[in-house]
Design a binder for these strands. Sequence first.
DNA 1: TTGACATGCAAGTGTTCACTTGCCTATTGT
DNA 2: ACAATAGGCAAGTGAACACTTGCATGTCAA
Lengths: 93, 93
Amino acid sequence: MTDVYKALADETRRLLLDELMQRDEQTLFELCTKLAMNHDLTPTRQAVSQHLGVLESAGLVRVERRGRYKLHTINTAPLAEIAERWPLRKAQQ
Amino acid sequence: MTDVYKALADETRRLLLDELMQRDEQTLFELCTKLAMNHDLTPTRQAVSQHLGVLESAGLVRVERRGRYKLHTINTAPLAEIAERWPLRKAQQ
DNA sequence: TTGACATGCAAGTGTTCACTTGCCTATTGT
DNA sequence: ACAATAGGCAAGTGAACACTTGCATGTCAA
């Protein structure tokens, strides 16, 4: 169980969430490709897999196995905790 | 310049933000005391000072020097970026 | 003015973390 | 069946990070 805050601490993981916002149900390989194409990042497949594991452990990504494919879907619900914990105050605007 | 996400990654820093939500313009020593009282944490003064430095660098804490006191105030505005970057989708609710 | 108080700076240490490497398992198509 | 594809496991490495220690600076009150 990773907490949401630690999951967001890494830029690569944030970019993975960005890509999943664009389209749900993407495989590990698709996400690796998009990191390279859209962000000039070329971590190994294992590194990306570990990042997705952290995101899943934090509840930010849901996984569904379909044959030999593992499809990843974003779940932004846990992020609500952040806005609720430190709400915006009018005086600061 | 620390990014907001890294600033939130540490539990002690999150608790400091919690304490600053309760009351603005607190000194380093006040915050040290509250970490001990409310959360059973006893890091050194320097450790807490460094954490406050990270929060300030991320724009989450504003500082005002008043004589020998340094008063810390929370600024939750940077957190809005998170909710905007990965908005909640109806289908997930 | 001098001692107490509030904070700052900087080097050193141990742990956490991202990443790689190497090998293994499972599924699919021909 | 078997080669190709998609993914998994686990140990090892280097860097980033939280934290401490020791000393220095600046402010205030008696």
